[in-house]
Design a protein around this nucleic acid. Structure first.
Ligand SMILES: [Mn+2]
Ligand SMILES: [Mn+2]
Ligand SMILES: [Zn+2]
Ligand SMILES: [Zn+2]
Lengths: 137, 137
DNA sequence: ATCTTCGCTGCAACAATGTTGCGTTAGAGC
DNA sequence: GCTCTAACGCAACATTGTTGCAGCGAAGAT
């Protein structure tokens, strides 16, 4: 189990430190997106600032992406393979459960193309769905 | 000009205070969504906490709605007429300009319906578009 | 295996934003 | 005008974001 984490870090030319292995392992095991608070709760020893920078690094490298869910809290989830440094390609929707407050990537739902009024140039699009998830019905 | 603001406040059974009139007036004149910092800059005398509660009240009453744009900063814009207390009905997209950092409501673009996997119940949906706006081309 | 280098960590410190309590102020109805 | 109570404004605290810097440790070289 360690091996997959280490390999992934190495493939991105990142040092395989304890913190990074722990955080990345959490992401690989989690079924939903993780917020900072969430991670801190599971890794009690972890330093707040180090986690902040770890997530920033992971995002810049294209390992994780921000899952905007309208809850006001920033969450992150593993990227798909197409993502790389400086270029995220996560064109799927995110579902936010208002009961358990978890957010999951809906890989099966792609963000629909829309036509904008004259003068607007669009670079990316995000679709946020809110409701009640499977577990909370 | 004052009259429209006062009438709107009264129609929601809200006291017509100086702060509320000022804030609501800003919203009615602005072409894009407003964040707290933005409002504070334009109303220099305003108290930070009072503004916070004013916006919360306006949102609860259905006068303004949150415009999620993925920038991490919460912004607000006037609701359409269908919105009411405890029931927002803003099914339009929001466009965020990465240059001027303004967010505008795209009333012409409605959030498309999507079909979710079994077990999910959907209550609302939001569509965020990012790019460069008219003025920044 | 030990050394060296440089990226990473962890602490301090500060900024920005969100939130509640409470005494004072002022709007609305009488 | 007077009364009642909603709204204001200040203090105080919580949470989150961000940078600087000294010490640690992972990775490659010897
Ligand atoms: Mn995702
Ligand atoms: Mn809007
Ligand atoms: Zn749930
Ligand atoms: Zn712009």
């Amino acid at each position: 189990m360690e091996k997959a984490v280490i390999d992934l870090l190495k493939s991105y030319q990142l040092r395989t430190t304890t913190v990074r292995k722990q955080v990345l392992d959490l992401f690989m095991q989690s079924k939903h997106a993780l917020g900072k608070t969430n991670i801190e709760a599971q890794l009690e020893e972890i330093d707040r600032i180090t986690l902040y920078r770890t997530l920033r690094t992971f995002e810049q490298k294209g390992i994780i992406h921000e899952a905007v869910d309208g809850s006001g809290k920033t969450k992150y989830a593993l990227c798909s393979h197409e993502c790389s440094e400086h270029a995220h390609h996560d064109h799927h929707a995110h579902f936010y459960c208002s009961l358990c407050e978890n957010t999951v990537c809906m890989d099966s739902i792609t963000v629909p193309e829309v036509s904008l009024p004259e003068g607007f140039r669009i670079n990316s699009a995000q679709l946020i769905l809110s409701g009640v998830c499977q577990n909370c019905q």
